[in-house]
Design a protein around this nucleic acid. Structure first.
Lengths: 141, 141
DNA sequence: AAATTATCTGAACACCTGCTCATACTTTAG
DNA sequence: CTAAAGTATGAGCAGGTGTTCAGATAATTT
């Protein structure tokens, strides 16, 4: 894991805004690609296993109701029925979605009496959330 | 848009690591929630429209093969057949996925001869990609 | 010109997702 | 104790997603 880290990070290089859009890299390579080129690409490409895990994480955030749940829980802990009332969803649907978020360790809950109070359990997800929110607010996005 | 920005950003507050996990906020509120509380939550919750757009964006990144395509295109521009060879996918499947990425403005292409060279068209997506990559590399993740 | 190459596209199919509904469980109220 | 409230969960179903397959298009080669 430690060894693969540098390779993994280099698989997606820094933004590199220094390189202008104009100077296009080599464009008329031989086809089919040589074994060397294929091997080079194989080293750069995200492993299937890692891609799978990343995709699963993104898919947790790819549902509007889950995002709305997170947006409320980012402010304060709330119980299932409050969440259901605020989002105008059935309590069953909310419970199912919270289960999904729980499985992904994005929220955790705390049962008091017959109510279950949910709160965020992941600080990274907020940064991500805000990044995309900001990204989509851009005029070109 | 400008006016809504502050409200939108405040919907998800800063990480606020200063507040310890110990001091739990108010936990035994009345139920059902008062009109005031419901109204407050309604102001904080992500709008359905915005949630929809964010979810669509995340869903673009929620497929392992699309992530692998992006990981290759982050390094250099590549044509469909190179990508297909590197990922061991059919050229048709790659073309379909590139169409999806194109529609989301994450990649753009450049046709030369009978080949189509694809490259990234979005700088934000790399930051996001790296954030999640880093997040999932953590021991607790 | 005909054949080949690189890509694109629509249809069809299998798989996955998120909802509702019915039901069960646990805790509080009467 | 019984009844009700709050939540959890499995089954089932409608809708969405990603692949393959067949076919079309345009540029190159022979």
């Amino acid at each position: 894991m430690v060894v693969s880290r540098s390779a993994a990070v280099s698989a997606i290089p820094a933004g590199d805004p220094a390189r202008g859009e104009g100077d296009v890299p080599v464009c008329d390579r031989a086809y089919p690609p040589s074994r060397d080129r294929l091997e080079t690409m194989a080293q750069r490409v995200l492993s299937m296993e890692k891609a799978q895990r990343m995709a699963e994480f993104f898919s947790i955030l790819s549902d509007p109701n889950r995002l709305r749940l997170l947006s409320l829980l980012a402010e304060e802990e709330l119980c299932v029925c409050d969440l259901a009332a605020a989002l105008e969803m059935s309590e069953s649907a909310v419970s199912h979605q919270l289960r999904t978020l729980r499985a992904a360790r994005l929220v955790r809950y705390d049962k008091r009496g017959r109510r279950a109070f949910y709160r965020l359990d992941d600080h990274h997800v907020l940064d991500l959330y805000r990044s995309v929110e900001h990204h989509l607010d851009e005029p070109c996005g």
